[in-house]
């Protein structure tokens, strides 16, 4: 099995993996990175989203060969309880979830949005999250949380 190298949450990572194996399995099964969640395995729900470069991708549908040399960010790399990302703070302030299983994928979509568009409108937030499914109906709180994070991030 070839060694595949990439950046994971800012640190160098290398795994011996079948190039056709999906990134989600490697993150969860081999590297113990559990924030990307298994939801459908078919690129249809967003639970497994991670950032590769500036793009949001479904890690369940992303073969390892395609991430060689890339920069991968998961929720573990967004922030910590001590140094939270504005989105993590905002999701707590807005109590923006019920079960929370969908949340890591949503945080990733939102983080990518705020990178490319620091002051999105509500409609832009909804559009950016539209491929993330939430079965609990926590959508509006999440949209409010993303808008709150955006305003905190641009505030001087």
């Amino acid at each position: 099995m070839p060694t595949i190298q990439f950046q994971l949450n800012g640190a160098a990572a290398a795994v011996d993996a079948d190039p056709d194996q999906m990134l989600l399995e490697v993150l969860r099964g081999r590297l113990g990175v559990t924030s990307p969640h298994f939801g459908c395995g078919a690129g249809e729900c967003g639970a497994c989203y991670v950032m590769v470069g500036d793009r949001v991708v479904a890690s369940c549908d992303m073969p390892m060969w395609s991430v060689a040399g890339k920069d991968i960010v998961t929720v573990e790399g967004l922030g910590t309880a001590e140094q939270p990302h504005a989105l993590q703070r905002a999701f707590i302030s807005e109590q923006a979830m019920q079960c929370g299983y969908c949340v890591s994928g949503i945080l990733i979509s939102a983080a990518a949005l705020l990178k490319r568009n620091p002051s999105p409108t509500e409609a832009e937030v909804r559009a950016a999250l539209d491929r993330n499914l939430c079965r609990c109906g926590s959508h509006n709180r999440m949209v409010r949380a993303v808008l709150r994070a955006a305003s905190e991030m641009v505030a001087p």
Binding site: T34, H37, A81, P84, G100
Partner: peptide, 20 residues
């Protein structure tokens, strides 16, 4: 504030799916 939410935004394994 709900006591389970911080774990869920900071990716601390809480779901059975994430436990080993």
């Amino acid at each position: 504030q709900r006591i389970d939410i911080p774990d869920k935004v900071f990716a601390r394994p809480r779901f059975i799916h994430d436990r080993t």
